[in-house]
Structures are given as structure tokens and as C-alpha cells.
Amino acid sequence: MSAGAEIEALIALMARLPGLGPRSARRAALHLLRKRKQIMAPLATVMDHLAETVCDCSICGNIATSEICEICANPKRNDREICVVEDVADLWAMERGGHFKGRYHVLGGVLSALDAVGPEELGIPKLLERAATVDEVILALNATVEGQTTAHYIADALEKLSVSITSLAQGVPIGGELDYLDDGTIQAAMRARKAF
């Protein structure tokens, strides 16, 4: 059953989104098409604008619509703590909990020799520069083998600085990812963080 080439192209593009397979994409596309004026047109306008304006924050790596994100521009944040996360989704998960009031550093991935991802690709040298002026670096990386390998690498690199190195405490399941945790688990893990 064909819906026309342009509609099929929309469905194919939507199916590339995380969590959407071909059937879910077809249902979502149909909903958008039925609600063209209420949802599709405003969504297209916002997406077009964001495609032109979104960039990475020059300080922490968060997604922003200006050179410096709202978190880095906020003078009320604690400049003496940096929370290191793997991805922007993890930063958003931490912010959703509302318990961390310091600064962030988004790595944009984890160390991976197979994928040729080294310290420079993750901005670890920039993290070390930023860490020289703080009291604590919180390693809030995913509890995966790659995440923990990256955390150990960063901890080793930070040893020469007089900075406290902590990691998230119990509550984050082994193999779990921050973006999938509930707010209470993230809150408990932040409160019970320990030396790395």
C-alpha cells in the first residue's frame, strides 16, 4: 500500500528516529498529516529554525541556540563543581532531577579504540583545563564497560590536580544509562556519590 512518494519519504525519515520503527513512524506521520495546521506546520517551522541555529556550547558541549548554553551563562550555578557526562541526553537527565547546581562537561561519547575515539575527540584535554579551577569533578558516566573505562582514564588524568574526583553512587544499575533512569534514582545517586 503506497501513500505517495513524498509521504513515504516522510515515513522513512521518521523511522530513522530512535524508538520509532516503520509501523510507529507510519502512525506518527499519519497523525501529523491529519493535524497539519495544529501540529505539522508549527513543528516544521520550529525544526527549520533549529536546524539553522542549534550549535554546541563552546564551554560545556551542551546543545544550545547560542555560543554559550543557558547553564553555562547562569551566574547562580556553582563554578567549583563539574559533572562529566557522556552525552547531552545524560545532561538533560541530570537537570531533570534538579539536584545538581554546578557546571557540566559533555564528552560526546566514550573512549573506543575500535571506533578511533580517543581523548582529543572527547574533549578530555579541555576538561582537564576546566578541572584545574574546580574543587570537585563528578564522573557521571554510564555504568557500561566503555563508560567505566572512560571514567578510569579521566580519573587517572585528573590525579595530578588537587581536585576531588567522585562518581555516582549506588542506584545506577550496572549496564544502565542515565537517560533511562527515573528522577528519584538520579537524586539518590547524586546524594550518595563517593570518591572514584
Rank of each mutant, 00 (worst) to 15 (best):
Q170R: 13
R23E: 06
K126C: 03
L128A: 07
A89V: 07
R96T: 06
G171M: 05
C83L: 15
N78M: 02
G97K: 00
I154N: 05
T53L: 09
D87T: 14
I82P: 09
R193Y: 08
E177T: 15
S66E: 12
L178A: 02
S24A: 15
L32M: 12
K160N: 11
L168K: 04
Q187L: 13
G123C: 01
I124A: 06
E177I: 12
L50K: 13
T166Y: 02
R27Y: 00
G175V: 07
D48R: 10
R193A: 03
D156Q: 13
N74Y: 08
I124R: 00
R36P: 00
A5M: 10
G123V: 13
R23M: 08
R80I: 02
L161Y: 09
A140Y: 02
K160H: 09
L13A: 15
A41Y: 03
I174T: 14
R26L: 09
D183G: 00
L141T: 09
G123T: 12
S2A: 10
A189E: 10
E159F: 00
I138T: 05
T144H: 03
C57D: 05
L178G: 04
D135A: 06
L50G: 03
A131H: 10
P125S: 07
P125E: 09
L178D: 04
R77W: 06
V134T: 08
T65A: 04
V84W: 06
R34C: 00
K126V: 13
P75W: 08
K37D: 15
I71Y: 13
A12G: 10
F196W: 14
